[in-house]
Design a protein around this nucleic acid. Structure first.
Lengths: 346, 346
DNA sequence: AGCGTGTTGGAAAGCGCTTTCCACGGACTT
DNA sequence: AAGTCCGTGGAAAGCGCTTTCCAACACGCT
C-alpha cells in the first residue's frame, strides 16, 4: 500500500497559486514571492506533508546533491577514518554521501565511478592507493575524465596519479624519517613487511624507508623485504616468512598499522617478545590501535583530516589546476621499538 | 565546460528506432525486441557512450536504486563492521548505498530518514541503539512510517522498538552468560562501566549482566555501576571514577569493547595490571581488537553478518509482519580475565 | 498623461526516461 | 477464407520538478 506522495502541483493547487510560485517558495530561488503567498504556500506544504522529490529536482536542475565516496573496504579503520572526515564535511554542506566499496578490485572502482556518474553526483572522493596496473589506471582515468566533463569534481586520497585534486600523505618522507629514527635507536639490521608489490602506497613507504636507511649507511637486503597482503592477516602471515628467512633483523617495519598488528601477533606466537627480541613499527597511527601494548611506534597520519581535506577540495567552488594537498606524517616512537638488545631474528 | 550527456533519444535517433525501443533494449523490460534492432541499439549506445540518467529513471519508475544506511559514527569499528556487511549485500544486489551519520543526534537521525525518503530510497538500514528518549523515538517512528508508506523497506540493527524488521543482538542474554562465566572463574565483586544511562543497548547489557550475577547469587551494588560515554574515552574516563569508588571489584565489565579498551588503558595508568589485579571484559568482539594483549574477554557478535542480515531483510521481496532476527552472542574468555587473585580495586 | 523601470505571478516548455496504448503483420485456428 | 492471437514497433502521455518567458501591475519620473 504505497501511498501517493504529495506533489508540488497539489500544494500549489491547494494554496491557490501556480506551480512556479510554489516551487519558488519551497525550493529556493532568487525570485521574490510576496509575503502573503509565501506564507500560504509554506502553510499548505506543511499541512500536506510535502516532501520534494529529489530525483525530479535532480533531473530538472541537472545536478544532484550526491557526493560519491569510494573506498576499498569500509571495515578497515584506515578507510573508515577517512570516511568519517569526508562525511562530516559533506553532510555539513547539506550533501548526501554515496558509499561505494571496491574490495580492491580495480574494475569495481571503474564501475562505481560510472554509477556515480549516472547519478549525476556532484563530486567524488576516491580513497585508496592506486596500483602499478597501468591499464586499470587508464580505465579509471577515462571514467574520471567523463565524470569531470560532466561537471563533477573529483579528489583522490593517495597518489596524485590521476590528474585530479589530490590529498597526498607523506608516505615516502614519513617512512624515511621513521627509518632514521629507528636507526638512531641503534638498529642496523632491518626487515620490512612490504605489503603487495603492486600497491603504490606500499611501494612508496618501502622506498622511503629504504632511503632513510641509506641516509644512515644501512643497506636493506632484498631478502629482508617480505611481501604479503596489506591487511592484518597479511602482516601475520608475513611473519612466518620473516622468521624462516633468518634475517637477523632487530627491527621490523610493517608498511601499515594493521599489518604491524598482525605481525606482533605472529611474533608472539613464535615466542618472540616486542620490543625485547625485535622492535616493530607501523604506519598510519590508527586511532583504535593507540592503546595497544606494547604501544605501536608508527607514523601518524591525520586520517579524518585527510578525508575532510579531500571533501573540501571537491566542494570548493573555484576550480584551478589540479591541486595537491600534501599531508605530513609525524613519527611517533612508542614502546614497540627500543634499542636493539638481542641477536635479532635468527 | 560541462559536456552534454548523450541521451536515450539521441541513441534512438542515431540507431533509427523509436525511443521506446531504445529504452526496452537498454534498460531492461519484459518486452521483446528483435535481434536486429537490439544489436543496432546496443551498438550505437556503446559507440556514443550512452549512460542512462539515474535521476530520470528514478523519476519515471518512481523508485530508485538507493539504499540508505544510517549509523552514529562510521569511524567506530562497531558501525564500520556493520556497514561492511550492509554494503556487501546491497552492492551485490546492484544497489547503491547512501551513508548517513548522525553523530548520535536523534534529530539528525530523523533528518536523514527524511532525506532518504526524498530520494525515494528503496530501503533503509538504521544501525545503532535507540535511547530512552520517547519523543525522539516517536519522531523517528513517524518518519519511518512515512518511508514505508511510500513503499520503502526499513530494517534496524538493535532494539526492535520501531515496528520494523530488526536484527537484534543478544545483548541481554549475552551479558548474562558472560556474567555467569566470570562468576564461575571465582569472581564475586564486580563493577560495570555502563555507558550512558539512556542508551538502550547499554542498559540491556547492564541488565543482562546483573541478571547473570543474580543467577549466581551475586549482587551488583549501585555504586559499582559507572556511567560514561559509550566510547574509548568514556571507558577511560570511567576508570578514574571506578578507582576512586574503591569498590573492591576484582572484575570489570565494560558494556562494549572500545570502552574496555579505554578502561584497560586507564587501569594501566593507575598501575593496575590486567588480569592480575583486575579482570576486564567487554562486549562486541571488535575484529581489530582481537590482537590486544592481554586478549580481551568479550561477547562475540558477528557484526558484519548482522549488517548482511539487516540488508537481506530489507531487500527480500516478500514482506510479512515485521520480522525479528535474533543474533546470538558467544562468550569468549581470553587472557584479560582470570580467577581473582588480589584484593580488587580498593 | 505618458513612459520607463522594477517587481511579482503564471503558463508552459522542458529535463531524460518509462510505459501504456495502439497499429500492424504474420502465424494459427476452425 | 475469415477470425484470432501473439510478437513487435512506435506515438505519446506522463513522472515531479525548474526555469524561461511573458503579462500585469505599481511606481517614480518628466
Amino acid at each position: 500500500m504505497t501511498s501517493r506522495q504529495v506533489t508540488l502541483a497539489e500544494v500549489a493547487k491547494e494554496a491557490g497559486v501556480s506551480l512556479a510560485t510554489a516551487s519558488r517558495v519551497l525550493n529556493g530561488s532568487t525570485r521574490q514571492v510576496s509575503e502573503e503567498l509565501r506564507e500560504r504556500v509554506l502553510g499548505t506544504a506543511r499541512r500536506l506533508g510535502y516532501l520534494p522529490n529529489a530525483s525530479a529536482q535532480a533531473l530538472a536542475r541537472n545536478s544532484s546533491v550526491l557526493v560519491g565516496l569510494v573506498v576499498h573496504d569500509i571495515a578497515d579503520p584506515y578507510f573508515s577514518s577517512i570516511a568519517a572526515g569526508v562525511t562530516r564535511i559533506a553532510e555539513d554542506a547539506g550533501l548526501v554521501v554515496v558509499l561505494g566499496t571496491t574490495g580492491r578490485d580495480p574494475r569495481r572502482e571503474v564501475e562505481l565511478v560510472n554509477t556515480l556518474r549516472a547519478h549525476r553526483a556532484r563530486a567524488l572522493v576516491i580513497a585508496g592507493s592506486r596500483t602499478t596496473d597501468r591499464s586499470a589506471s587508464r580505465h579509471l582515468a577515462e571514467e574520471i575524465t567523463a565524470f569531470t566533463a560532466q561537471g563533477g569534481r573529483v579528489a583522490c586520497v593517495s597518489q596524485a596519479k590521476l590528474g585530479t585534486d589530490t590529498v597526498v600523505p607523506a608516505n615516502r618522507s614519513g617512512a624515511r624519517a621513521l627509518a632514521r629514527r629507528l636507526a638512531a635507536l641503534g638498529h642496523r639490521r632491518f626487515a620490512v613487511l612490504a605489503g603487495p608489490p603492486d600497491l603504490l602506497v606500499a611501494r612508496d613507504r618501502l622506498a622511503g624507508f629504504r632511503a632513510g636507511l641509506a641516509d644512515e649507511g644501512i643497506d636493506l637486503p632484498h631478502a629482508n623485504v617480505i611481501t604479503s597482503g596489506f591487511t592484518r592477516d597479511g602482516g601475520h602471515a608475513a611473519v612466518a616468512d620473516l622468521v624462516a628467512a633468518r634475517t637477523g633483523a632487530t627491527c621490523v617495519f610493517a608498511v601499515n598499522d594493521v599489518m604491524a598488528l598482525g605481525a606482533m601477533a605472529g611474533l608472539r606466537e613464535h615466542g618472540l617478545r616486542v620490543p625485547e627480541d625485535v622492535s616493530v613499527a607501523g604506519f598510519d597511527d590508527i586511532p583504535t590501535l593507540r592503546d595497544l601494548v606494547p604501544a605501536l611506534s608508527t607514523v601518524r597520519l591525520p586520517l579524518e583530516e585527510m578525508g575532510e581535506r579531500a571533501a573540501r577540495l571537491v566542494l570548493d567552488d573555484v576550480v584551478a589546476a589540479p591541486r595537491t594537498v600534501r599531508v605530513a606524517g609525524e613519527v611517533v616512537l612508542r614502546a614497540s621499538t627500543s634499542p636493539p638488545s638481542g641477536t635479532g631474528l635468527r
